[in-house]
C-alpha cells in the first residue's frame, strides 16, 4: 500500500481528496487502479500526469517500482525549452 499525494487541480477529480492510499507495486499498477476507482482521471493519466518518487520525477517510466515508504506525488507533466 502506498500513499499518493495529488496536486490541487487533480484533487477535484477524486472527490476533493489530496491523499489517496493505493495498493500498487509500480506506476503502471498505480495508474490502472486510480483509473478504475476514479474514471475522471483517465484523461489526465494519459496526457498530463508525471509521478514524483522520492523527489525524482518520472514522466513515462511506468515500470518504476513504488517502495511502500516512498514519497509519491502526482504532479503536472512538465514542458521544457
Amino acid at each position: 500500500m502506498v500513499e499518493v499525494t495529488l496536486w490541487g487541480s487533480l484533487a477535484a477529480l477524486v472527490d476533493g481528496q489530496k491523499q489517496i492510499e493505493v495498493d500498487a507495486k509500480d506506476i503502471r499498477e498505480l495508474f490502472r487502479k486510480l483509473a478504475e476507482r476514479y474514471p475522471a482521471l483517465r484523461g489526465p493519466i494519459e496526457n498530463d500526469i508525471a509521478v514524483s518518487v522520492d523527489g525524482v520525477i518520472y514522466r513515462d517510466s511506468w515500470s518504476k517500482e513504488l517502495p511502500e515508504d516512498a514519497e509519491i506525488f502526482l504532479m503536472r507533466r512538465l514542458v521544457g525549452g
Binding site: T5, W7, S52, D54, G55, V56, I57, E71, F73, M75
Partner: peptide
C-alpha cells in the same frame, strides 16, 4: 518539502 509538493532527495 518543495513548494510545488514533493520532498527533495539530494539537491
Amino acid at each position: 518539502r518543495s513548494s510545488y509538493g514533493p520532498v527533495y532527495g539530494p539537491i
